[in-house]
Design a protein around this nucleic acid. Structure first.
Length: 258
DNA sequence: AAATACAGCAACCGCCTTAGT
DNA sequence: GACTAAGGCGGTTGCTGTATT
């Protein structure tokens, strides 16, 4: 027996949203804010499932959405993030302000897949399409941060993730500079993922000048997503391997940015 | 001009995770 | 710890507009 439906299907509208429904939803959220999607439809006078309202708001009505065509810069960023994260669309979307996971997923399936194939790169594995298939190998990665407060934090920070799709031979070949150049010219895909090299700064001044943001770590300095120059408020920030801002301690919880 | 194929994308579905009890 | 409700996510579907025949 499966779980009960999230709402009473008999009395809910389905399919495309009308302008009036959009307006009702926007008005309600403006007045009451997001939250409790289950009760929202009734409260807002909508004959919709709560999930449907949430999707409509997040993917289409939210005021901070960018809309419009993806830039070349965004394309490359998505490709790089996908090579690291796989189909974790929400995580990828979290690194592209104004873009939604659904939008990125659709864009990937309709544009980027084709783009990569035309470059001779398998969009799933990010490896050349003519490379022989090898048995996938699961690789465990772990991060251990220093200066953690207590054992509980230690447990939370020791993240074990999995990166699949590389065999041992692949691991060796993927270390060749030629191969890496082919995949992403400025992205190190070495499997041993660890906290980024921490420079030993002589003083705070050096430290303030040096932290690299996510955009820079991906090789797109001077982009609009570059935060380096914005971080001049005296706060000493650093960035984890995905470029998420930390206060010097890697916290996997910040991976979820939505 | 009509029929068909294709591309793009909004929306749905079902599963998983999380929070509350 | 078990159970339930709700939120969130990724895969998939199906509608609509455009291109091609």
């Amino acid at each position: 027996m499966g779980r009960s439906p999230c709402c009473e299907k008999a009395h809910t509208n389905k399919g495309a949203w009308t302008k009036e429904e959009d307006e009702r939803l926007i008005a309600y959220i403006r007045n009451h804010g997001e939250g409790c999607w289950r009760s929202l439809p009734k409260a807002a006078g909508l004959l919709r499932c709560g999930k449907s309202c949430r999707l409509r708001w997040i993917n289409y009505l939210r005021p901070d959405l960018k809309r419009g065509n993806f830039t070349e810069e965004e394309d490359e960023l998505i490709i790089k993030l996908h090579s690291l994260l796989g189909n974790k669309w929400s995580l990828i979307a979290g690194r592209l302000p104004g873009r939604t996971d659904n939008e990125i997923k659709n864009y990937w399936n309709t544009h980027i897949r084709r783009k990569l194939l035309s470059r001779g790169i398998d969009p799933t594995t990010h490896r050349p399409v003519n490379e022989p298939n090898t048995t996938p190998k699961v690789t465990t990665i772990s991060f251990t941060a220093r200066n953690i407060k207590d054992e509980e934090d230690q447990k939370m920070i020791n993240v074990k993730g999995e990166l699949s799709g590389l065999s041992q031979e692949d691991e060796i070949s993927s270390n060749s500079s030629q191969f890496q150049e082919l995949l992403c010219p400025d992205l190190n895909l070495e499997l041993r993922i660890s906290p980024p090299y921490q420079q030993n700064y002589q003083n705070d001044q050096d430290m303030k000048q040096s932290p690299r943001c996510f955009a820079c770590s991906l090789g797109i300095e001077n982009s609009k997503d570059c935060n380096c120059s914005k971080n001049n408020m005296g706060n000493i920030a650093s960035y984890d391997f995905l470029g998420l801002k930390t206060n010097g301690v890697l916290d996997y919880r910040t991976l979820e940015t939505k």
